[in-house]
Amino acid sequence: MALNDVKTAVAQLTALVTDLDDETARGASVLPGWSRGHVITHIANFSEAMTRQVEEALQGRLVEFYDGGRPARDTAIEAGANRPAAELESHLNSATTGLLTAFGKLTPDDWQRPITHRTSNLAAALNTTWRELLIHITDLGLAITPGDWPPAFCLHLLEFLRPRTPEDITLILVPTEGPTWQSGAGEPRTLTGELQALTAWYAGRTPATPLRGQLPDLLPWP
């Protein structure tokens, strides 16, 4: 279970946005078309939505992740992105604190309770939160990059992203440190580099260090 990892990610995120100024908040993130305000708003809104999944699951209820679905999610991000930095920080801290509090209520018997998000359960929700936080921390384009991802997170993310491998190749990732990782069935395609760089590329982010090999076009995120 990754609860301690999620707590660590929240602490990293909190430190990054503490005393963020308005100019930096409105600066470009590494995501095309999004400022840092967009990323912070998205993380805060995601945290509130996941908190609701947890709290409703504890009551035996299933609810939509975002009221109004993806269109409402996107509208809310745009509406909140240009707020003053202090307001962004306050919203983020309140939302992530609430989420940690909700996860902290769960007993060992609760983790298999179903939720609507990805038609999964609360154990999967915790892993989803881990991914969302660590990936979007790097999307802020501040002090933390994919090169800082822990190896355990890289291996977890590679497994989650297996559906990105094209059907006609066998993707073989050979990290400079760590075990070889393989996905798919087809023509072998071998890439080498640092584990974090390989994982960043597979996740659609820019690797911090070079990769060697012919990069295939990947399928969409699962």
Rank of each mutant, 00 (worst) to 15 (best):
V54Q: 08
P166C: 07
A79Q: 11
I40M: 09
F153P: 14
Q182E: 15
P84I: 04
E78A: 14
T206P: 10
R131D: 13
A203E: 05
L191A: 06
R212V: 14
L58W: 00
I169W: 04
A25F: 01
L195H: 02
V63Y: 05
R70L: 15
T14R: 15
R73K: 08
F153I: 10
T97N: 13
G27E: 01
P179Y: 03
A9Q: 07
I144W: 02
D109N: 13
Q12Y: 10
V39Q: 00
Q59D: 12
L155P: 06
A15Y: 01
E23S: 14
T209Y: 09
E78I: 05
N127K: 13
Q112W: 05
Q53M: 10
V54W: 01
A2P: 10
L142T: 06
P222Q: 09
D217P: 11
L92K: 09
P188L: 04
L171W: 02
I43M: 12
L88A: 12
V30P: 04
E177R: 14
Y66S: 11
W111Y: 04
I169L: 12
T180K: 10
L134D: 05
H38T: 00
L126C: 12
N93W: 02
A79C: 03
G213T: 11
F160I: 10
D19E: 07
Q59K: 15
E177P: 05
E55I: 02
A9E: 01
H38K: 00
G60Q: 06
A57G: 04
G186C: 10
E55S: 04
F103D: 07
I77M: 12
C154H: 06
Q112E: 10
T8Q: 15
I144G: 03
Y66F: 14
N127S: 14
P210I: 00
T97A: 15
G68P: 00
S35A: 12
L134T: 11
E56S: 11
S35C: 11
A124S: 14
A125P: 05
P179N: 09
P150Y: 04
A197T: 03
N82Q: 13
D21W: 03
T97Q: 10
L134P: 07
L155G: 08
M50Y: 10
E194K: 12
E167H: 09
R118E: 03
D148H: 14
A200R: 00
L195V: 05
C154L: 08
T129E: 14
T107Q: 15
V17S: 05
L88D: 04
L31S: 12
G141S: 09
R212D: 11
P32L: 09
R52Y: 03
I144L: 09
D217G: 08
H91N: 14
T14N: 14
D217H: 05
E23T: 10
E177S: 15
P179R: 02
L195I: 03
